[in-house]
Amino acid sequence: MRDRWISLYVENQVGVLAKVSGLFSGKNYNLQSLTVGTTEHEDVSRMTICVTSDDVTFEQIKKQLNRMVEVIKVVDITSAPLHMKELLYARINDIGPDEMSQVFQLAEVFKVRVCDAGEDCLILECLLTTESNDELIKLLKKKFKKVSIVRGGAVAMESISISKR
């Protein structure tokens, strides 16, 4: 069992997202994240899907996706060199001046931006890999009492020359 990545080209039509996500729930596949947006062709959407599975199930997932009429192309990008990032906002509430500076320090270490602030709160805007976002969340929850998080799921594109995620 490990994380796998699929880049999925689908028709940009009503119901396609429901159909794809329905496949994962209906067949008990372990969907980790799914993002979708249009591509350079407005009638084509591209999904970035992360799923945790074994080899056999993953093969089956790709075949099942492939046989959907609305699916144009299934690309397995699990082992391809990628650019992959996820947008995350974290709001830290009810904090004093000491804690605020801690947040600024963390932001520097993680190379994320403090994008908004109030008297006793801050918002971090993080563009990191999913794994780094996971780590940041863990840390924030440990250090601060009131943290609210929204994250968008990862989007990925095959890299030209770099092999780093």
Partner: peptide, 15 residues
């Protein structure tokens, strides 16, 4: 269309 999504090859509401 939503109800039958998992038991048809293709389903669509003509829009």
């Amino acid at each position: 269309v939503g109800m039958t999504r998992s038991v048809v090859k293709y389903g669509v509401t003509v829009s």
